[in-house]
Design a protein around this nucleic acid. Structure first.
Length: 891
RNA sequence: GCAGGGAUAGCUCAGUGGUAGAGCGGCUGUCUUACACACAGUUGGUCGGGGGUUCAAAUCCCUCUCCCUGUACCA
């Protein structure tokens, strides 16, 4: 009777609902609402980004939380946006320039024109990811979309900078920073990845200037020898004490340099003598400062040697120069030995090349509100899930270093500092700048440019992207929104940005927004491939979520992923799981289709409910509670699994199969009504529970099943979640628990019956009949259901049934169940089968007897456990007797 | 080095003291009137190794091995 297709086709349905939700403003947050607030700010993806599996996981979770909160009657703000991603975006446009003929660099284009180009690129290609998030079904308030460089947000970044500068927390100084020789910018410590590397350790002879001997010095970086200004030994080292104060000859760009004593040198390491190169090593820089040593910089910003005093190396790339310098040293007879050596090298997260410690003028931030930020998490004001991340967070805060916030980039927030033109050069070279300079009228720091811009020169640098995103939770909101929605409720993000972003947002929240930015932080797992590797473009192991959506539907993708996303550990992505999500959507669709094929439920005659009806409603009630509990604990996989197993196993496999006969033509109309009403109740309630994770199909079925029409045409998404106790309202609890027992007995008996059939290769035979010696009330209705479930012609109760010898039997909750064979069994096969079973049973009996023969077990274990064991033994023994008699009957 | 996480069926994972589970895969059947994206049945495990506590351990304790993730580094 139905014209509905047999298989669910998600694509059209999903697009339809996404449009409709938007059109009806379902995602819009009203700051004037009287409802309690629930809010999330999205971790803004890079504007250059495309959706990857991490985003899918992350945003599905946020969407579940947001949709569920709406169902619970909250006013929900899920605030979306994108991040300008300084380096990534700039690099993207530079790449385009490099492809031109002839290739160009940003310097060829010039700053202003280049920034224009990036904006154009952003307007044209940026924000693809926003469209993709919409395809995933994300219920963000898209009218409030922000961009970290838009006209509302950018001034906030400058304001924050200005305030911190005036407070003295932002300062400028000449410091050792992590320098990226490819991108030509400073990086923060967090952007440097310490990577285990196979290197060489070179031991080199530094001759004493007076010719009285030599000092052996080990280094991994011989190309920096020209910048050596001393050799240091530990003052307590008995081998070298007499050398301190003498001079040695620097082996390259030869010069006399002093031997100094410094605690920093470890006596046991290498030769115990350390070359000091303050310009190219962090700790050497400190040693140099302490000892008042000169700083000789022999590297260009792009990592080439700059040392005219050593013409053989001058101009070479740093790694070429490394080999060449060793050749020179060996030729001079100064190379003692070369060993393999494993050490950690700092690699730029962005350009993937070794960074250089480099002395340069940069802006730094002394973090504000560190104490408050640490306490907020320690005291549980902000709750981290899983909790163990709190430790990582605390550890980072303890050893926190000032943040290098300036970047030598053009794309980003330009540092809002201007220098008075005539003094600009001197000021830009000055090692420190403070508010005093501002008061003196030499510099200007502010959100808007100075009133007389022609007299000023703006600082060239831009701010680290994270310096704009750390104020995301509040700078994205206007005053009304802040009043209603700040602090936000949940933050959902990956643990990989706990320092970059989460920690900094907490500090910013306390400093600028008067309190914590969020109450809960849920750290998602990291999505890996089946080999456990991180998904990355270069490995090509990252599936394209849009392709997955096209093949499995957004709902299928969401469901499949959430079902395998554990709460504590990483998730290994397996496309099979997504396929299951799709299969589940199809199952749901077909169950609804089945209902639609039955027509309306009537009220006449009054429905007659059987135990199975009450039972499924009771199970749904339990599902409601466990779903609520799981979501309360942010256990999304438990939530998903509970929904899956209820629907597939309890509703479809058991309940629907048990009631199919109620729906047939000519059946009892009172039973038919009961069944239709129950199906409606289950579907209506279940769709509401499932909607947060599979919103599209639920909405579609909600409508096609007619639930929307009965609800004033309201979409499911703006319908409050019904209470669990509406499901069985008014039904006596004793009757329910009775129904529970009887239904469990029915399903269990059906299962035993099917197993009996299978044992005798009668699985597909529908003509078998079962005879039951009932131990529980076994009415005709139950008998009919049992026959239906077991695929039998009939199931009859006979209290004094005399089974022919050898009739297969099983003990069921309803009593002893027989499968009369009518002599259609292969004797030889039967004998073998029974023989094997007896072997197994004997083992079990022996095991059980041993346990019960153990006095300690009987004395110490709880009575129930012992009782259980006795029953088990009795079961096995009776089974054994049966089999033996069957064996005898075969002969 | 330090810190954290993990090791359970061929695969992905549940399972915090009381007969080892699910889904997928494999194998057998079945187009049984919602669903072959399905149904029925079935096959898979010394729960990483060793030791301990206990009547009883995948589960608690100790130890070892291997993987992962942070983090700190000495040339």
């Amino acid at each position: 009777m139905t014209e509905l297709p047999k298989a669910y086709e998600p694509t059209v349905v999903e697009e339809k609902w996404q449009e409709r939700w938007l059109r009806e403003g379902c995602f819009h947050a009203d700051p004037h609402s009287a409802k309690p607030a629930y809010s999330i700010v999205i971790p803004p993806p890079n504007v250059t980004g495309v959706l990857h599996m991490g985003h899918v996981l992350n945003n599905t979770i946020q969407d579940i939380l947001a949709r569920r909160a709406r169902q619970e009657g909250k006013e929900v703000l899920w605030l979306p946006g994108t991040d300008h991603a300084g380096i990534a975006t700039q690099a993207r446009v530079e790449k385009e320039l490099a492809k031109e003929n002839p290739p160009r660099t940003r310097f060829d284009v010039g700053r202003e024109a280049f920034v224009d180009m990036v904006w154009q690129w952003k307007n044209k290609h940026g924000g693809i990811i926003i469209k993709q998030l919409k395809k995933l079904g994300c219920s963000c308030d898209w009218e409030r979309e922000r961009f970290t460089m838009d006209e509302v947000y950018a001034p906030e970044v400058a304001r924050v900078f200005t305030e911190l500068f005036k407070e003295g927390l932002i300062y400028r100084g000449r410091r050792m920073v992590n320098w990226d020789p490819v991108l030509l910018t400073a990086l923060s410590d967090e952007e440097v990845i310490m990577t285990p590397t196979h290197s060489k350790l070179y031991t080199i002879r530094y001759k004493l200037a007076d010719g009285s001997g030599q000092l052996l010095v080990s280094t991994t970086r011989p190309e920096t020898i020209m910048a050596d200004v001393a050799v240091a030994v530990n003052p307590k080292d008995p081998r070298y004490g007499h050398l301190v104060g003498k001079k040695v000859l620097r082996p390259l760009c030869t010069a006399e340099i002093p031997v100094i004593a410094d605690e920093h040198v470890e006596i046991g390491f290498g030769t115990g003598a350390l070359k000091i190169t303050p310009a190219h090593d962090r700790t050497d820089f400190e040693v140099g400062m302490k000892n008042g040593l000169e700083i000789i910089d022999i590297l260009t910003p792009d990592g080439h040697i700059n040392c005219p005093g050593c013409p053989e190396l001058h101009g070479l790339d740093r790694f070429v120069a490394r080999d060449k310098s060793i050749e020179l040293i060996e030729a001079a007879g100064l190379l003692e030995k070369v060993e393999d050596y494993d050490n950690n090298v700092g690699i730029s997260q962005r350009s993937d090349v070794p960074i250089e410690p480099r002395l340069s003028m940069q802006w730094f931030l002394k973090y504000p509100c560190v104490q408050e930020a640490a306490e907020a998490v320690a005291k549980g004001d902000i709750v981290f899930r899983p909790a163990r991340w709190a430790k990582t967070y605390a550890h980072w805060l303890e050893g926190i270093q000032d943040w290098c916030i300036s970047r030598q980039l053009w794309w980003g927030h330009r540092i809002p500092v201007w220098y008075r033109k005539e003094k600009a050069e001197a000021l830009q070279a000055a090692t420190t700048l403070t508010e005093a300079d501002e008061l003196a009228g030499d510099i200007y720091v502010g959100v808007t440019p100075p009133a007389d811009p022609e007299n000023w020169v703006q600082d060239e640098d831009a701010l680290d992207t994270w310096f704009s995103s750390w104020i995301w939770p509040f700078s994205t909101m206007d005053a009304e929104c802040l009043a209603k929605f700040y602090p936000t409720s949940d933050l959902v993000t990956g643990p990989d940005i706990i320092f970059f972003w989460v920690a900094r947002m907490i500090m910013a929240g306390y400093r600028f927004a008067g309190g914590k930015p969020f109450s809960n932080v849920f750290f998602t797992s990291i999505v890996r491939d089946l080999k456990g590797r991180k998904m990355s473009k270069s490995l090509g192991n990252s599936p394209d979520p849009l392709d997955l959506i096209a093949r499995y539907g957004a709902d299928g993708l969401r469901f499949g992923l959430m079902r395998i996303a554990p709460t504590g550990t990483d998730v290994k992505f397996d496309e099979k799981q997504i396929e299951e999500g799709k299969n589940f959507a199809n199952k749901l669709y077909n169950a609804a289709r089945f209902r639609m094929m039955q027509g309306e439920a009537g009220s006449d005659p009054a429905p007659r409910f059987a135990p199975v009806h009450l039972d499924i409603l009771d199970k749904l009630r339990q599902l409601h509670d466990s779903v609520t509990e799981a979501l309360g604990k942010y256990e999304f996989n438990t939530y998903t699994q509970a929904l899956y197993s209820f629907f597939w196993n309890e509703y479809c496999s058991l309940f629907l199969e048990a009631v199919k006969n109620d729906l047939r033509e000519g059946g009892d109309p009172a039973l038919r009504n009961a069944t239709l009403l129950t199906m409606d109740t289950v579907l209506r309630h279940y769709l509401a529970l499932l909607a947060p994770i599979m919103p599209h199909i639920c909405e579609e079925l909600w409508q096609s099943l007619g639930f929307a029409a009965r609800n004033g045409g309201q979409p499911l998404m703006s319908t409050p979640l019904p209470a669990a106790d509406t499901l069985l309202g008014g039904v006596d609890e004793t009757r329910i628990s009775q129904a529970r027992v009887l239904s469990a007995a029915l399903y269990e008996t059906a299962n035993r019956a099917r197993n009996l059939k299978a044992e005798y290769n009668l699985s597909t035979n529908k003509n078998v009949r079962f005879v039951l010696k009932p131990a529980l009330p076994f009415d005709a209705d139950t008998a009919a259901r049992l026959a239906l479930l077991a695929g039998a012609k009939e199931a009859v109760a006979e209290a004094d049934y005399q089974a022919p010898k050898g009739t297969p039997t099983a003990l069921t909750p309803f009593g002893e169940l027989f499968l009369p064979l009518e002599g259609l069994v292969d004797v030889e096969a039967e004998r073998n089968r029974i023989g094997k079973q007896l072997e197994k049973i004997d083992k079990e009996i022996a095991k059980s007897q041993a346990k019960l023969g153990n006095a300690k077990f009987v004395d110490h274990a709880p009575a129930a456990v012992v009782e259980q064991e006795r029953a088990r033994l009795a079961d096995w023994q009776s089974k054994k007797t049966q089999l033996e008699s069957m064996l005898a009957a075969l002969v």
